[in-house]
Amino acid sequence: MRKLVIGNTNLEAPEIGLGCMRITGLKDKKEVRSLIDTAMDCGVNFFDHADIYDSGHAEEVFGEVVEPAMRQKMIIQSKCGIIPGKAYDFSKEHIVESVEKSLKRLKTDYLDLLLLHRPDTLMEPEEVAEAFEELEKSGKVRYFGVSNENSMQMELLNKYCGNRIKVNQLQFSIAHCDIIDSGLNVNVHEEAGINRDGSVLEYCRLKDITIQAWSPFQYGMFEGVFLGNEKFPKLNQLIDELAEKYQVTNNAIAVAWILRHPARIQTIVGTTNQQRLTDICKASEVKLSREEWYALYMAAGKVLP
Protein backbone atom coordinates (compact mmCIF):
# COMPACT_ATOMS: atom_id res chain seq x y z
CA MET A 1 0.00 0.00 0.00
CA ARG A 2 1.42 3.34 -1.05
CA LYS A 3 1.58 6.07 1.58
CA LEU A 4 0.92 9.77 1.58
CA VAL A 5 1.61 12.53 4.09
CA ILE A 6 -1.43 14.18 5.63
CA GLY A 7 -1.26 17.91 4.92
CA ASN A 8 2.08 19.37 5.93
CA THR A 9 2.28 17.20 9.05
CA ASN A 10 4.57 14.29 9.85
CA LEU A 11 1.62 11.89 9.78
CA GLU A 12 2.13 9.27 7.09
CA ALA A 13 -1.00 7.37 6.12
CA PRO A 14 -2.08 4.79 3.53
CA GLU A 15 -3.71 6.27 0.44
CA ILE A 16 -6.79 4.14 1.16
CA GLY A 17 -8.60 4.34 4.50
CA LEU A 18 -11.48 2.29 5.90
CA GLY A 19 -14.70 4.12 6.72
CA CYS A 20 -16.41 2.58 9.74
CA MET A 21 -19.95 3.90 9.32
CA ARG A 22 -21.42 0.47 8.56
CA ILE A 23 -19.47 -1.84 10.87
CA THR A 24 -22.42 -2.21 13.25
CA GLY A 25 -24.25 -3.95 10.39
CA LEU A 26 -21.91 -6.92 10.69
CA LYS A 27 -23.15 -10.06 12.41
CA ASP A 28 -21.08 -9.76 15.56
CA LYS A 29 -17.91 -8.27 17.09
CA LYS A 30 -15.86 -11.18 15.79
CA GLU A 31 -16.69 -10.12 12.23
CA VAL A 32 -15.80 -6.51 13.05
CA ARG A 33 -12.42 -7.61 14.35
CA SER A 34 -11.88 -9.79 11.29
CA LEU A 35 -12.59 -6.82 9.01
CA ILE A 36 -10.11 -4.68 10.94
CA ASP A 37 -7.48 -7.43 10.74
CA THR A 38 -8.02 -7.71 6.98
CA ALA A 39 -7.57 -3.97 6.61
CA MET A 40 -4.35 -4.02 8.62
CA ASP A 41 -3.04 -6.97 6.59
CA CYS A 42 -3.66 -4.90 3.43
CA GLY A 43 -1.72 -1.96 4.85
CA VAL A 44 -4.87 0.00 5.64
CA ASN A 45 -4.25 1.19 9.20
CA PHE A 46 -6.35 4.34 8.76
CA PHE A 47 -9.86 4.17 10.24
CA ASP A 48 -12.47 6.88 9.72
CA HIS A 49 -15.26 7.39 12.27
CA ALA A 50 -17.86 10.00 13.21
CA ASP A 51 -19.81 10.48 16.40
CA ILE A 52 -23.10 10.15 14.48
CA TYR A 53 -22.33 6.76 12.92
CA ASP A 54 -25.09 4.59 14.38
CA SER A 55 -25.43 7.20 17.16
CA GLY A 56 -21.90 6.47 18.38
CA HIS A 57 -22.32 2.71 18.43
CA ALA A 58 -19.84 2.24 15.56
CA GLU A 59 -17.10 3.87 17.63
CA GLU A 60 -18.12 1.80 20.64
CA VAL A 61 -17.94 -1.52 18.82
CA PHE A 62 -14.60 -0.57 17.26
CA GLY A 63 -13.19 0.31 20.68
CA GLU A 64 -14.33 -2.99 22.14
CA VAL A 65 -12.45 -5.13 19.61
CA VAL A 66 -9.16 -3.19 19.41
CA GLU A 67 -6.54 -3.87 22.08
CA PRO A 68 -4.26 -1.05 23.33
CA ALA A 69 -1.20 -2.57 21.66
CA MET A 70 -3.04 -2.66 18.34
CA ARG A 71 -4.13 0.98 18.71
CA GLN A 72 -0.52 2.17 18.49
CA LYS A 73 -0.30 0.80 14.95
CA MET A 74 -3.45 2.64 13.84
CA ILE A 75 -4.42 6.08 12.66
CA ILE A 76 -7.89 6.87 13.98
CA GLN A 77 -9.94 9.79 12.72
CA SER A 78 -13.35 10.90 13.93
CA LYS A 79 -15.77 13.71 13.12
CA CYS A 80 -18.17 15.87 15.11
CA GLY A 81 -20.48 18.84 14.68
CA ILE A 82 -23.74 17.28 13.44
CA ILE A 83 -26.75 16.96 15.71
CA PRO A 84 -28.91 14.74 13.47
CA GLY A 85 -32.14 16.32 12.34
CA LYS A 86 -31.62 19.39 14.49
CA ALA A 87 -28.55 21.50 13.88
CA TYR A 88 -24.85 21.82 13.28
CA ASP A 89 -22.80 22.84 16.29
CA PHE A 90 -19.19 24.07 16.15
CA SER A 91 -19.29 25.62 19.61
CA LYS A 92 -16.28 25.00 21.82
CA GLU A 93 -18.43 23.18 24.34
CA HIS A 94 -19.86 20.82 21.76
CA ILE A 95 -16.52 20.06 20.06
CA VAL A 96 -14.73 19.30 23.33
CA GLU A 97 -17.62 17.25 24.70
CA SER A 98 -17.91 15.29 21.44
CA VAL A 99 -14.21 14.41 21.51
CA GLU A 100 -14.43 13.26 25.14
CA LYS A 101 -17.32 10.96 24.26
CA SER A 102 -15.60 9.59 21.15
CA LEU A 103 -12.43 8.84 23.12
CA LYS A 104 -14.47 6.98 25.71
CA ARG A 105 -16.31 4.93 23.10
CA LEU A 106 -13.13 4.18 21.14
CA LYS A 107 -11.25 3.33 24.35
CA THR A 108 -8.30 5.48 23.36
CA ASP A 109 -6.53 8.47 24.87
CA TYR A 110 -6.26 10.43 21.63
CA LEU A 111 -7.49 10.90 18.08
CA ASP A 112 -4.95 11.26 15.32
CA LEU A 113 -7.39 13.47 13.43
CA LEU A 114 -10.59 15.31 14.29
CA LEU A 115 -12.74 16.69 11.47
CA LEU A 116 -15.60 19.14 11.72
CA HIS A 117 -18.46 17.34 10.00
CA ARG A 118 -20.23 19.66 7.49
CA PRO A 119 -20.20 23.47 7.79
CA ASP A 120 -21.96 25.31 10.62
CA THR A 121 -23.05 28.73 9.36
CA LEU A 122 -23.35 29.91 12.99
CA MET A 123 -19.72 28.99 13.57
CA GLU A 124 -17.63 31.42 15.59
CA PRO A 125 -14.08 30.62 14.49
CA GLU A 126 -12.62 32.02 17.72
CA GLU A 127 -14.50 29.30 19.64
CA VAL A 128 -13.30 26.61 17.27
CA ALA A 129 -9.75 27.86 17.75
CA GLU A 130 -10.14 27.65 21.53
CA ALA A 131 -11.44 24.10 21.26
CA PHE A 132 -8.59 23.03 18.97
CA GLU A 133 -6.01 24.66 21.26
CA GLU A 134 -7.38 22.90 24.33
CA LEU A 135 -7.62 19.50 22.63
CA GLU A 136 -4.15 19.75 21.14
CA LYS A 137 -2.47 20.88 24.39
CA SER A 138 -4.17 18.10 26.34
CA GLY A 139 -2.90 15.54 23.82
CA LYS A 140 -6.41 14.40 22.96
CA VAL A 141 -6.21 15.35 19.27
CA ARG A 142 -3.07 15.47 17.15
CA TYR A 143 -4.36 17.13 13.98
CA PHE A 144 -7.54 18.79 12.71
CA GLY A 145 -9.57 19.06 9.55
CA VAL A 146 -13.01 19.60 8.09
CA SER A 147 -15.51 17.80 5.93
CA ASN A 148 -17.55 19.17 3.02
CA GLU A 149 -16.22 22.73 3.30
CA ASN A 150 -15.35 25.22 0.59
CA SER A 151 -12.18 27.26 0.26
CA MET A 152 -13.29 30.38 2.10
CA GLN A 153 -14.77 28.42 4.99
CA MET A 154 -11.37 26.80 5.51
CA GLU A 155 -9.64 30.15 5.04
CA LEU A 156 -11.81 31.67 7.76
CA LEU A 157 -11.09 28.82 10.16
CA ASN A 158 -7.37 28.88 9.48
CA LYS A 159 -7.22 32.62 10.16
CA TYR A 160 -8.15 31.93 13.77
CA CYS A 161 -6.94 28.35 14.17
CA GLY A 162 -3.28 28.87 13.32
CA ASN A 163 -3.51 26.99 10.00
CA ARG A 164 -4.50 23.81 11.78
CA ILE A 165 -6.82 22.59 8.99
CA LYS A 166 -4.94 19.69 7.42
CA VAL A 167 -7.77 17.67 5.80
CA ASN A 168 -10.97 18.28 3.87
CA GLN A 169 -13.20 15.25 3.32
CA LEU A 170 -15.30 15.65 0.16
CA GLN A 171 -17.63 13.41 -1.81
CA PHE A 172 -15.70 12.44 -4.92
CA SER A 173 -15.86 9.75 -7.57
CA ILE A 174 -15.66 9.35 -11.36
CA ALA A 175 -19.40 10.06 -11.54
CA HIS A 176 -19.48 12.75 -8.84
CA CYS A 177 -16.63 15.12 -9.49
CA ASP A 178 -17.79 18.72 -9.53
CA ILE A 179 -14.41 19.76 -8.13
CA ILE A 180 -12.87 18.48 -11.38
CA ASP A 181 -15.63 19.70 -13.72
CA SER A 182 -15.42 23.37 -12.79
CA GLY A 183 -11.64 23.41 -13.19
CA LEU A 184 -11.83 21.91 -16.68
CA ASN A 185 -14.61 24.20 -17.85
CA VAL A 186 -13.17 27.59 -17.00
CA ASN A 187 -14.54 30.43 -19.13
CA VAL A 188 -17.12 28.10 -20.66
CA HIS A 189 -20.84 28.86 -20.50
CA GLU A 190 -21.86 25.34 -19.48
CA GLU A 191 -23.38 23.74 -16.38
CA ALA A 192 -20.10 21.94 -15.71
CA GLY A 193 -18.28 25.27 -15.47
CA ILE A 194 -20.25 26.48 -12.47
CA ASN A 195 -17.87 26.90 -9.55
CA ARG A 196 -19.86 25.64 -6.56
CA ASP A 197 -17.08 25.17 -4.05
CA GLY A 198 -14.58 28.00 -4.46
CA SER A 199 -12.03 25.97 -6.47
CA VAL A 200 -11.59 23.74 -3.45
CA LEU A 201 -9.37 21.25 -5.29
CA GLU A 202 -6.82 23.88 -6.26
CA TYR A 203 -7.11 25.61 -2.89
CA CYS A 204 -6.30 22.41 -1.02
CA ARG A 205 -3.30 21.79 -3.24
CA LEU A 206 -2.03 25.33 -2.66
CA LYS A 207 -2.49 25.10 1.11
CA ASP A 208 -1.19 21.53 1.58
CA ILE A 209 -4.58 20.30 2.74
CA THR A 210 -5.21 16.61 2.06
CA ILE A 211 -8.48 15.84 0.32
CA GLN A 212 -10.19 12.66 1.47
CA ALA A 213 -12.70 11.20 -1.01
CA TRP A 214 -15.85 9.74 0.53
CA SER A 215 -18.43 7.62 -1.35
CA PRO A 216 -15.96 6.79 -4.15
CA PHE A 217 -18.50 4.53 -5.89
CA GLN A 218 -21.58 6.78 -5.66
CA TYR A 219 -22.96 8.87 -8.51
CA GLY A 220 -25.22 11.13 -6.48
CA MET A 221 -25.59 12.18 -2.87
CA PHE A 222 -27.09 8.82 -1.93
CA GLU A 223 -28.65 7.74 -5.22
CA GLY A 224 -26.60 4.58 -5.64
CA VAL A 225 -23.37 3.25 -7.07
CA PHE A 226 -22.31 3.58 -10.69
CA LEU A 227 -20.52 0.23 -10.82
CA GLY A 228 -22.72 -2.25 -12.66
CA ASN A 229 -25.41 0.39 -13.02
CA GLU A 230 -27.30 0.43 -16.33
CA LYS A 231 -27.34 4.24 -16.20
CA PHE A 232 -23.59 4.18 -16.94
CA PRO A 233 -23.07 1.61 -19.73
CA LYS A 234 -20.04 3.27 -21.38
CA LEU A 235 -18.34 3.88 -18.05
CA ASN A 236 -18.82 0.31 -16.87
CA GLN A 237 -17.66 -1.12 -20.17
CA LEU A 238 -14.42 0.85 -19.99
CA ILE A 239 -13.92 0.09 -16.30
CA ASP A 240 -14.32 -3.63 -17.04
CA GLU A 241 -11.83 -3.43 -19.91
CA LEU A 242 -9.27 -1.70 -17.70
CA ALA A 243 -9.93 -4.14 -14.87
CA GLU A 244 -9.08 -6.98 -17.24
CA LYS A 245 -5.98 -5.13 -18.49
CA TYR A 246 -4.61 -4.52 -15.00
CA GLN A 247 -5.91 -7.82 -13.59
CA VAL A 248 -7.93 -6.18 -10.83
CA THR A 249 -11.62 -5.74 -10.03
CA ASN A 250 -13.86 -2.93 -11.21
CA ASN A 251 -13.90 -1.27 -7.79
CA ALA A 252 -10.11 -1.13 -7.84
CA ILE A 253 -10.21 0.76 -11.15
CA ALA A 254 -12.74 3.22 -9.71
CA VAL A 255 -10.39 3.95 -6.80
CA ALA A 256 -7.29 3.98 -9.03
CA TRP A 257 -8.96 6.82 -10.98
CA ILE A 258 -9.06 8.89 -7.77
CA LEU A 259 -5.53 7.96 -6.72
CA ARG A 260 -4.14 8.91 -10.14
CA HIS A 261 -4.80 12.61 -9.53
CA PRO A 262 -1.62 14.51 -8.54
CA ALA A 263 -3.45 16.13 -5.62
CA ARG A 264 -2.67 12.87 -3.73
CA ILE A 265 -6.28 12.33 -2.69
CA GLN A 266 -6.81 9.78 0.07
CA THR A 267 -9.79 7.50 -0.62
CA ILE A 268 -12.09 6.41 2.21
CA VAL A 269 -13.96 3.20 1.38
CA GLY A 270 -16.87 2.00 3.50
CA THR A 271 -17.13 -1.67 2.58
CA THR A 272 -17.61 -4.27 5.30
CA ASN A 273 -16.89 -7.14 2.92
CA GLN A 274 -13.37 -8.45 3.52
CA GLN A 275 -12.81 -9.76 0.00
CA ARG A 276 -14.07 -6.53 -1.50
CA LEU A 277 -11.72 -4.55 0.71
CA THR A 278 -8.80 -6.72 -0.38
CA ASP A 279 -9.79 -6.20 -4.03
CA ILE A 280 -10.10 -2.43 -3.61
CA CYS A 281 -6.66 -2.18 -2.04
CA LYS A 282 -5.09 -3.45 -5.27
CA ALA A 283 -5.90 0.01 -6.68
CA SER A 284 -2.72 1.15 -4.98
CA GLU A 285 -0.76 -0.99 -7.45
CA VAL A 286 -2.42 0.55 -10.53
CA LYS A 287 -1.37 3.78 -12.18
CA LEU A 288 -3.71 4.72 -14.98
CA SER A 289 -2.28 6.55 -17.95
CA ARG A 290 -3.34 10.11 -18.69
CA GLU A 291 -5.36 8.83 -21.66
CA GLU A 292 -7.11 6.19 -19.56
CA TRP A 293 -7.95 8.71 -16.83
CA TYR A 294 -9.57 11.13 -19.28
CA ALA A 295 -11.33 8.30 -21.11
CA LEU A 296 -12.98 7.23 -17.86
CA TYR A 297 -13.95 10.81 -17.10
CA MET A 298 -15.66 11.19 -20.47
CA ALA A 299 -17.25 7.72 -20.28
CA ALA A 300 -19.07 8.97 -17.19
CA GLY A 301 -20.88 11.46 -19.45
CA LYS A 302 -18.50 14.39 -19.22
CA VAL A 303 -17.61 16.51 -22.24
CA LEU A 304 -14.28 18.29 -22.52
CA PRO A 305 -14.50 21.90 -23.77
Rank of each mutant, 00 (worst) to 15 (best):
D41N: 12
V248Q: 07
M154N: 10
V186G: 00
E230F: 08
L106C: 12
K137Q: 13
E59L: 04
L113F: 15
E191N: 12
S173T: 09
E155G: 10
M298T: 14
G224P: 14
D178V: 13
R196C: 09
K86G: 03
E149H: 14
N10E: 13
T271C: 03
L11A: 13
S91A: 07
M152Y: 07
G56E: 08
R290Q: 09
T38P: 00
L115Q: 15
K159M: 12
P84H: 06
V128E: 05
N150S: 10
E97G: 06
L111C: 01
T210H: 05
K104G: 09
E133M: 07
R290W: 04
A69P: 00
G85M: 05
D279G: 10
Q72E: 14
L227I: 15
S151E: 13
W257T: 02
N163K: 11
T121Y: 15
S147Y: 05
D178I: 08
Y110I: 06
E127P: 00
S78C: 04
A192M: 10
K101Q: 13
Q169V: 05
E292R: 02
K86V: 15
I36K: 01
G43W: 00
T108I: 11
S55R: 15
R118Q: 09
D178F: 11
V44A: 06
E60A: 06
N10C: 05
E291Y: 06
H117S: 03
K73D: 12
E230I: 09
R164E: 06
E100N: 13
R205D: 11
S138R: 14
K29M: 10
C204R: 08
K207E: 15
V61M: 13
F90M: 03
A254V: 11
I174M: 06
E126I: 10
D240T: 12
V44Q: 01
M70V: 09
P68G: 13
S91K: 02
L135A: 01
G81I: 03
L238N: 08
S173F: 09
P262K: 12
N187R: 14
N251L: 03
S199C: 08
F144W: 02
P84R: 10
G63R: 07
A129P: 05
G139W: 07
S102L: 09
A39V: 01
K73F: 02
N148E: 15
L304V: 12
F217V: 07
Q266P: 00
K101A: 12
L238W: 02
R205H: 12
T9Q: 10
E241Y: 02
E133W: 11
R33Y: 01
V146R: 00
D112W: 08
G19P: 06
N168E: 12
T24C: 08
D48N: 14
G19H: 06
G220P: 11
R33T: 01
K92T: 07
K234S: 15
G7Y: 12
A192S: 15
L242I: 13
Q274E: 14
L156P: 00
K302W: 03
I194P: 00
A263M: 06
P262Q: 05
L242V: 07
T249S: 14
V269T: 10
V66N: 01
F226W: 06
G228K: 11
N148A: 14
H117W: 05
L184R: 14
V167G: 04
Q247V: 10
